[in-house]
Write a protein that binds this DNA or RNA. Sequence first.
DNA 1: GAATAAATATCGTAATACGATATATATGCA
DNA 2: TGCATATATATCGTATTACGATATTTATTC
Lengths: 158, 158
Amino acid sequence: MDESHRKRGASRKRPVKARNASVKKADYEALAEFRYALRKFLAFSEEAASKAGLTPQQHQALLAIKGAPDTDWLGISQIAERLLVRHHTAVELIDRLVALGLVVRMTDPEDGRRIQVHVTKDGEERLRALSAIHIEEVKNIQPTLRKLLKQFYASGGE
Amino acid sequence: MDESHRKRGASRKRPVKARNASVKKADYEALAEFRYALRKFLAFSEEAASKAGLTPQQHQALLAIKGAPDTDWLGISQIAERLLVRHHTAVELIDRLVALGLVVRMTDPEDGRRIQVHVTKDGEERLRALSAIHIEEVKNIQPTLRKLLKQFYASGGE
DNA sequence: GAATAAATATCGTAATACGATATATATGCA
DNA sequence: TGCATATATATCGTATTACGATATTTATTC
């Protein structure tokens, strides 16, 4: 729809910003490959979590808590932030993790509204096993990912 | 569950593969950060697709088709493969895209069982706009992603 | 100490991926 | 040729889960 604009742009010495004027076959291929790689990694992660008896979100919640800088617990809202979901979604998620005995709720002594979500011994063990194989996997896919990212250096711009 | 094995391994001069023996705080943080970055990118993508009137999966289906090497169409099964979903999930997904007028079904002249899913003019335009901003975004997050990946070079091993 | 804000919780709903199953076409082989 | 089996796509009912709307509890402010 911007063909005419491109033409006008092309009449200048240098087009200001070609934007979506030219997205080439190679660009689609690069994006598609990149997304496929991400999906593969995410699928690997889901499979691993599933084998450990966890849903992907449960795994990510545990990781968010143990991966928090400085502390070993998080509040509901902070978990929601890190997981990019709404507060009440985090509430429900934590409900299920509590039911599984993988986290516990403790009211914050300094603010009665807030609760601290702590990972239990059992939760920590499962997360540790999962994390170990994830580190391996990230190492494995790193070269592929780097190669795919590199394709975008010269892409799409003009 | 493999604690005993670890113990036995630890009695050797050098543990063969410490695996999940030691996953440190920094490892959890690195994994958590990495996943957060992926979520952010995926959220950006969802938002962009949504603004274009598409679900994330619809966007990915269009991208998979136009991003297929050598051809400009794909069969249902191939779409399912690239999207890592079951065949019938892809069928339903394509149903919705057909309803939106973004793709069309054409029976393959060489195999009556197979159908070719082609992207329409309208579908292509939407995908082009989406792809342009995605290329921009990937360029933007590249440095962050590379930095995060780098953290895994020395991680978790032993 | 009443009003407002912040954190967490509850409930009903909608979207979608899935398993089980069905249909249509192709292929192999006696 | 014709039947058995395989492959590709389609249909239907179900379960999971994230969400919006709303409620409850505790803090804060003036």
